[in-house]
Design a protein around this nucleic acid. Structure first.
Lengths: 215, 215
DNA sequence: AAGCGCATTCTTGTATACAAGAGCGTTGAC
DNA sequence: GTCAACGCTCTTGTATACAAGAATGCGCTT
């Protein structure tokens, strides 16, 4: 069983991959028909998605895929930068030897996948890199919050790692972050990670701005 | 209508005020009977509370009031300190004249209520003070996140403002925060707010530690 | 012809009925 | 007497039926 959970994942995927687009209405009945379940687990799944911010529930009007404005996205990247910076600061001070080695290993994975120009593999290695930093902060709650917002920004982050120069810069930034953590320098790690994320946010902001201008 | 929402608020209050204590099981049937509604809106309310972290849903086992360990609370205060610090930093750089005046006014309210030794009134004035800083950051998402975690920590925060000396110190800290914001000094505001929150966290940690030792 | 109002219909919100898994007690065997 | 297994019950998870609010379209009136 546990249909609601499965539905949650399925809908999340469809939203992230663009099957449903921001602003789209999610009709309970048609979803129930399509997945061949009753409305009950559909409603549960929608409420769970609403709690993560992926959809919005309007009273008596139904569920809609959250439509983030330009400002909304910038705001979230601002917070993401702060959270990741904090993770980094704590990680640099608290990290274990084993964790340190693991991060270095995953960083090497990133380098390898980038050199092979395997976009998807690089994307996933990059994701593991960031998740390791979340976990290394030794604050489970912070790690969860960071991971959740990270996931929430996924649809927007994927848009931008196309430019090859960005990948090269990103790797250089990762390297200096790894170094800063190894040195146990919390402040430097925090600053580097903040900038690393904010650059992404700014890139994306440029992208969205050009997109909105075209529309 | 909108029973689920009303139930959510009612249950939240009962948890915050201690009618239900951390670890308690929340039985759907008995709640439905007590509130004279069916299980459906009860389930909705419980899921909403779960999304904010106030209760935990265990699959096939039901809902339990979240029992935060000592470590859990410390972790949350660590994050709260960072979020509030960030709010303060942004607020100091972005605050409007009107907002500045409003914060000063509420700060004066805090001073007045404290001098009258009206614990509840002071508590609420203090809460308004912090919420104003959240809003002043001009990042709606950050403000929401901060407010949510703030609310989440409410049951734990109330335990500790008993000591009179803490109130006096707290007011002095508020004053220097107001000054730092007026000066537009983001870094100083951030540092002061972080410390202001972390002190609360440490006080509470001491309290919990002594409590757990006694038990 | 245009605007307002009413009714119909569609959708969400709530109640109830049903299914299935988990825990617990009892009973039987060793 | 103790341990294990079986079955019962209790609770959650899902389906369906019902109620109520919101939107839309049609008709009537001016």
């Amino acid at each position: 069983m546990r249909r609601a959970q499965a539905l949650r994942d399925a809908l999340e995927q469809e939203i992230i991959t663009g099957r449903f687009r921001p602003g789209d209405r999610l009709d309970e009945q048609s979803l129930a028909a399509r997945f061949e379940v009753s409305r009950t687990p559909i409603r549960e799944a929608l409420m769970q998605l609403a709690s993560t911010g992926l959809v919005e529930l309007q009273a008596r009007r139904g569920a809609f895929v959250t439509l983030l404005s330009f400002k909304d996205v910038v705001e979230r990247f601002e917070v993401m930068a702060a959270l990741e910076g904090m993770c980094g600061a704590l990680a640099a001070r608290r990290i274990t030897q084993a964790m340190q080695r693991e991060i270095e290993k995953v960083h090497e994975d990133c380098v390898r996948e980038a050199s092979q120009e395997n976009a998807d593999a690089y994307y996933y290695a990059n994701e593991r890199f960031h998740h390791l930093i979340y976990e290394a902060c030794q604050n489970r709650f912070l790690a969860e919050q960071a991971a959740q917002l990270h996931a929430r920004l996924k649809p927007y982050r994927r848009l931008q790692l196309r430019a090859r120069s960005r990948v090269a810069n990103s790797l250089a930034e990762h390297q200096s972050i790894v170094d800063a953590i190894r040195d146990g320098d919390g402040e430097r790690t925090e600053r580097l990670l903040r900038e690393h994320i904010l650059i992404q946010g700014e890139r994306l902001a440029d992208f969205i701005a050009s997109f909105e201008r075209a529309a």
